[in-house]
Nucleic acid binder design. Structure first.
Lengths: 154, 154
DNA sequence: AGCGGAGTTGCATAGTTATTCATTTACCGT
DNA sequence: ACGGTAAATGAATAACTATGCAACTCCGCT
């Protein structure tokens, strides 16, 4: 089971020196986990471990396990949430959409848009209360405008 | 000189995303350091950098020594230098080009663009990590995109 | 000048990690 | 039960990083 293996990896990396993935593979095998290097590469990525002079280490100091980890992991705010919180209106202009928000709401909205990386959005620029959304062409801008309006009106 | 190069590496790693040694090599070349990947591997070891999900990072906490960092950068930063330091990617959309940068990199990049006053650029708008470059028409925007990409990939 | 050692680097390549592709497995809704 | 879909994984391999070695430079000494 992947979850158990992840915990074992955290434990090994936190309490002993692990210099490379093959060493990790051997240590895990002693604990009953038999997987290949490819899987460990993916595990390490998912656990966001980093590799430095002293082998692998946990992501910046916090070695939280199990339940505590899950509690913190409340995904980042979605575009829908941000628009619901801050959005005032959205207007298309050529290949752009201008989104007006409450004061100070532009940055969070733009950040959420960037993170979700909609295919119709090339990029965003945010001020204090205005987000400029750049699309490849007017058609895509219209789609974005429509989608944002749907959220605004819901 | 090795010492200067080490400082440049610290600066690049601290202020921009460096995903691998070849990328670091290209960014250093723009600043006048011409070395091979082998040397960078040694430099990284000596600087005790670590590599994680967000590229290379400085050894836990100690940032750049302000004076030393400033000493490297004399003349007004060029667009090429700024793009090398902060640029992530460039995408054209109609008569605009959206430039994504490392967090906080948009303002310096836009300032450099404004100062160099390219004929194909009408103006720029910068947020935290995105610069919107306005061109007179799509053709000119394509030229700007191509030129920025050349820098990014050089 | 000539010698010898320490330091730095590039080249080639060994060592390590990430990714692609195909397969297997588990779970859904019909 | 049966296709359809998504998650997990291994094998092969691409991509990336470290290292042995030779060449070169820079000093300090004779």
């Amino acid at each position: 089971m992947k979850f158990q293996r992840h915990n074992a990896i955290r434990e090994l990396v936190g309490h002993s020196l692990v210099s490379n993935q093959d060493e990790l593979r051997r240590k895990l095998r002693r604990r009953g986990f038999e997987v290949t290097q490819a899987t460990l590469s993916r595990d390490i990525h998912e656990l966001r471990l980093s590799k430095g002079p002293g082998g692998y280490s946990l992501p910046n100091g916090n070695g939280i396990h199990g339940a505590a980890a899950a509690a913190i992991d409340n995904g980042p705010p979605s575009v829908a949430e941000m628009i619901e919180s801050f959005g005032l209106r959205a207007n298309q202009a050529m290949n752009q959409v201008v989104v007006r928000t409450a004061m100070g709401g532009a940055q969070p909205v733009a950040a959420a848009l960037d993170r979700e990386a909609w295919p119709e959005v090339v990029g965003t620029v945010a001020g204090d209360d205005t987000v400029l959304v750049i699309c490849p062409d007017p058609r895509r801008a219209a789609e974005v405008e429509a989608r944002l309006r749907t959220i605004l009106e819901s």
